[in-house]
Simulated scan of single mutants.
Amino acid sequence: MNKFKFLKESLKSIKTSGTIFPSSRFLTTKLLKGIDFNKPNLIVEFGPGNGKITKEILKQLHPDSKLIVFEINDNFYNELLKINDNRLVVINQSANSILEVIKTHGFEAVDYIVSSLPLTNIPKTITDTILENAYKSLKPNGYFFQYQYSLTYYSALKEMFKGRITLSFEPLNIPPAFIYSCQKD
Score class of each variant (00 low, 15 high):
residue 2 N to M: 08
residue 3 K to T: 15
residue 3 K to G: 03
residue 5 K to A: 11
residue 6 F to D: 05
residue 7 L to A: 07
residue 8 K to N: 12
residue 10 S to W: 08
residue 11 L to K: 14
residue 11 L to D: 08
residue 11 L to C: 13
residue 13 S to Q: 14
residue 18 G to S: 12
residue 19 T to P: 05
residue 20 I to Q: 06
residue 24 S to E: 03
residue 24 S to Q: 08
residue 25 R to V: 00
residue 27 L to V: 04
residue 36 D to T: 11
residue 37 F to P: 00
residue 39 K to T: 15
residue 40 P to R: 10
residue 42 L to D: 01
residue 50 N to R: 04
residue 55 K to R: 15
residue 57 I to L: 04
residue 58 L to I: 03
residue 59 K to T: 10
residue 60 Q to A: 06
residue 64 D to W: 11
residue 66 K to F: 12
residue 71 E to G: 05
residue 76 F to M: 06
residue 80 L to M: 09
residue 81 L to I: 06
residue 83 I to Q: 01
residue 84 N to V: 12
residue 87 R to N: 02
residue 89 V to R: 07
residue 90 V to G: 02
residue 94 S to I: 05
residue 94 S to V: 13
residue 96 N to G: 05
residue 96 N to F: 14
residue 98 I to R: 00
residue 100 E to N: 15
residue 101 V to N: 04
residue 107 F to C: 08
residue 112 Y to Q: 05
residue 112 Y to I: 01
residue 113 I to W: 00
residue 114 V to D: 00
residue 115 S to Y: 01
residue 116 S to V: 02
residue 118 P to V: 09
residue 119 L to C: 13
residue 119 L to M: 15
residue 120 T to G: 09
residue 124 K to G: 13
residue 125 T to I: 15
residue 125 T to L: 14
residue 127 T to L: 12
residue 132 E to S: 14
residue 135 Y to K: 10
residue 137 S to P: 07
residue 137 S to N: 11
residue 137 S to A: 15
residue 140 P to Y: 11
residue 145 F to R: 02
residue 146 Q to E: 02
residue 146 Q to G: 06
residue 146 Q to R: 10
residue 157 L to C: 12
residue 166 T to D: 13
residue 167 L to N: 05
residue 170 E to T: 15
residue 174 I to L: 14
residue 176 P to T: 10
residue 177 A to L: 11
residue 179 I to Q: 02
residue 180 Y to F: 14
residue 182 C to Y: 04
residue 182 C to I: 09
